[in-house]
Design a protein around this nucleic acid. Structure first.
Lengths: 343, 343
DNA sequence: TTGAAAGCGCTAACAG
DNA sequence: CTGTTAGCGCTTTCAA
C-alpha cells in the first residue's frame, strides 16, 4: 500500500482514462457519460481521493481562500465578528485564513504579506490601533486584491476594490439617550473615554444631539471623562453623585464602565432604574448577568462579519468595471433591559 | 503597466538570469554571488514581487499551513484557545486556516475534508459535541496527516501521528475544594451538570476526593444537579438554603452557576465569603466583575492552544519513526479571589 | 556560480 | 463523449 495520496493521474491510469476525463467527471461536467462518472466516483471514494486544492488553485489562478487580519481574537467583539466572517465565508464556499496583528503595525504588515503570498482572493481587515502609516495597504490595492475594512478603517482609503463595514456609533448613542429621555430622565450623565478615538467621539456626539433633540440642556458637569473600565465607571459615578444636582441616568460609552456605575449605585442604595437609569454600549456577555440586567447597545458583531464577506463577494463578482462600492454602515440595536426600563 | 503580479520568470527575464538563480537568490541560497543577490533583491522590491506560496507548496509538497477545526468561535474558551494557536503557529512560521463545525458532525466531516484538500500540514481539532462516529478522523489518520485534539477528544484514538491536549478537570476541582476546606469550610456544596459529560464527571470526582482527602464527609444532599447557567445556579442555591443544615461553601462546575449562587447569597443577606464561600470554574471574564470578585479555576485556554501547536510541531518534526506522543494534560490554576478568601 | 530541464497535480483549450 | 497538450509558478536535481 502506497502512502502517497491518490492523484487524478492515479485514477486515470487505474481506469484507463485520461486525466481530463477524470477531472471533468469529478467536477460533474455535463459532457461525461453517467457511466464513466459513476466509475470514477466509485474509485475515488475507494481510494479516499482528495483533490489537491493547491494545484487546482495554481492552475485556475485563484485560491478560494479569504484572508482575515484582526488585531486579536480576544474579548467580546473580534471573536464574534470572526465567527460571522467564518460562517458567511463557508456558506459562500470560501476557506478562511486568519492572522492577528496583536495591535502592532509591523505584524500587520508582515501578515498582510503572508496573506498575499498565500494567494488569497480577498482580505478582510480591522486595523491595529497603532497603525498610522498605511503604505502596506497601498501595496494590496496595487495588486488589485479586494480589501474590506471592518470596524477600524483607514479614513479616506477608497478605491475600485475597497469597501468597508462599520457600525453607526453615533446612531447607537443617540438611540440610547433618546430612550432614557423617553423614560422621563432629564439629567442624563455621560461616561466617555478620550474624544480623539472616533468611537468615543461619535458616541459623545450622539449623546449631545439626542439631548438637544429632546429639549434637554447639555450640562457639561454631567459629562465625565474616565477610563472605560469598571473601576473608571465606579470613580466616575462617585464623582457625579457629589454634585448638588445628581443625575437621574447614566449613558456609558461601554459596558464595563456601566457595570462600575451600576455597582456604585447599588452601594449607595439607589434604585436602578427608578433613581438612576443606566445604559451601556457593546452588549458584552456580562451585561446579562448583572442585577438588574444592563441595557446596552448591540453592535451586531456577527452581522458585521457576514456583511464584510458579502461586500468582498461583491467586489470579487463585480469585475474590473463595477462602480465603487459604498461603505456599509450598520444600524446598532438598542437592547432595553431592566437597568433602564421604568415601565 | 501590467496588472499581473511579478513572477520569478519576470525577474529572470529582466535581469537576464535563469529562474533557478532567482529562486536561489531569493531564498538566500549560499552559492549565489552577493552581487547577484543584491540585484535580484533590488528588482524584487521594486516590482513588489510576492512569491506565490501555492506554487511553492505544490512543488515542495507541503504548504506551511495548519488547519484548525473548532465547534465555534464564541464564548470565552474557544476564542482564547484559537488565539493561543494562532500566536504560536505564527511564531513557528505556520499559517492557520480556521473552520467551525457549529457543533455539527456533518460540518465537521466536510470541513475536515476541506482542510485536507487545502493540503494543510497538520490539523488541530476540538470535537463537535454531537460527534459519536469518528470515521472521518480515520481518514485523516490514514493519510498520515498529523492530528492534535484539544479539549474535546476521541477517547482511545491514538496513533503514530496523533496527540492531544486537555486540562485536568479533576485536578482543578480538587484544588478548588481543597482550598475551601483550608478556609475552614466543612459543608461544601457542589453544583454540577449531568455526569455523562466528562468535564462534569471529572470535576465531580475531584470534589468528592478532595472532601475525603480533607476528612470531610460527602453529603449527598449538598450535591445539586442543575442547569449550568446563572438561573440554574440561583435555583440550586435556593434549594440548598432550605436545608436544615445549610452549606457554608459552594463549588460550582462553572462560573455562570457560581454567579447565580452569588446573587442569591446576596439577596439572602449572606456575607460572602464569611457565611458562604463560593468558587466557580473556567475563569470567565465576568468573574472579575462580580461583587465580591469570584474565585475560579483557570483552564489556561491560551496555553492549551500553544501546547497543541507545539505537539503538532513535534509530530511534524518527528518523522515516521518517532515514538508515540503522550497526551498532554495541563494543570489548571486556581484563582483565589474575594468570594472565597476568608483571610 | 549559474543554467537547463523536469515536474508537483490540476484544468482548460482544442482536437478528435 | 473523450484524449492530447500545455502550462499555472515554483524548486530542485543534474550538468556545465
Amino acid at each position: 500500500m502506497s502512502s502517497r495520496r491518490a492523484s487524478i493521474t492515479d485514477l486515470a491510469k487505474t481506469l484507463g482514462l485520461s486525466p481530463s476525463t477524470i477531472s471533468r467527471a469529478l467536477s460533474d461536467h455535463h459532457d461525461v457519460s453517467e457511466a464513466t462518472k459513476l466509475r470514477v466516483r466509485t474509485l475515488a471514494a475507494e481510494l479516499h481521493y482528495q483533490p489537491n486544492q493547491l494545484a487546482a488553485a495554481l492552475r485556475r489562478g485563484h485560491s478560494n481562500t479569504l484572508g482575515v487580519l484582526v488585531p486579536h481574537i480576544t474579548g467580546n467583539f473580534f471573536p464574534l465578528v470572526v465567527h460571522g466572517i467564518a460562517t458567511e465565508a463557508t456558506k459562500l464556499g470560501f476557506n478562511v485564513m486568519i492572522c492577528q496583528s496583536n495591535e502592532d503595525v509591523r505584524q500587520e504588515q508582515t501578515n498582510l504579506g503572508l496573506l498575499m503570498n498565500a494567494q488569497v482572493e480577498g482580505i478582510l481587515v480591522s486595523l491595529a490601533n497603532t497603525t498610522r502609516d498605511v503604505g502596506h495597504f497601498e501595496a494590496v490595492r496595487q495588486q488589485d486584491v479586494p480589501l474590506v475594512f471592518f470596524d477600524r478603517l483607514v479614513e479616506g482609503f477608497r478605491g475600485r476594490n475597497v469597501s468597508s463595514v462599520v457600525v453607526d456609533d453615533y446612531q447607537g448613542a443617540f438611540q440610547a439617550v433618546a430612550h432614557l429621555a423617553a423614560q422621563g430622565c432629564t439629567r442624563i450623565a455621560h461616561l466617555t473615554g478620550p474624544l480623539h478615538l472616533s468611537i468615543n467621539k461619535n458616541r459623545h456626539q450622539g449623546y449631545r444631539d439626542a439631548l438637544t433633540a429632546h429639549g434637554l440642556p447639555v450640562a457639561e458637569e454631567l459629562i465625565v471623562f474616565c477610563e472605560m473600565t469598571q473601576k473608571g465607571g465606579t470613580q466616575a459615578l462617585r464623582q457625579l453623585l457629589k454634585l448638588p444636582q445628581r443625575p437621574d441616568a447614566v449613558f456609558a460609552s461601554n459596558d464595563l464602565a456601566a457595570v462600575g456605575a451600576l455597582q456604585v449605585a447599588r452601594t449607595h442604595r439607589l434604585r436602578v432604574p427608578q433613581d438612576l437609569a443606566i445604559v451601556g454600549f457593546s452588549n458584552e456577555a456580562f451585561g446579562a448577568l448583572t442585577e438588574p440586567m444592563l441595557s446596552t447597545v448591540d453592535q451586531r458583531c456577527e452581522q458585521m462579519g457576514r456583511t464584510a464577506v458579502q461586500q468582498l463577494q461583491k467586489l470579487l463578482k463585480g469585475g474590473p468595471t463595477h462602480p465603487e462600492l459604498r461603505p456599509v454602515v450598520l444600524k446598532p440595536k438598542l437592547l432595553v433591559r431592566a437597568s433602564s426600563q421604568r415601565k
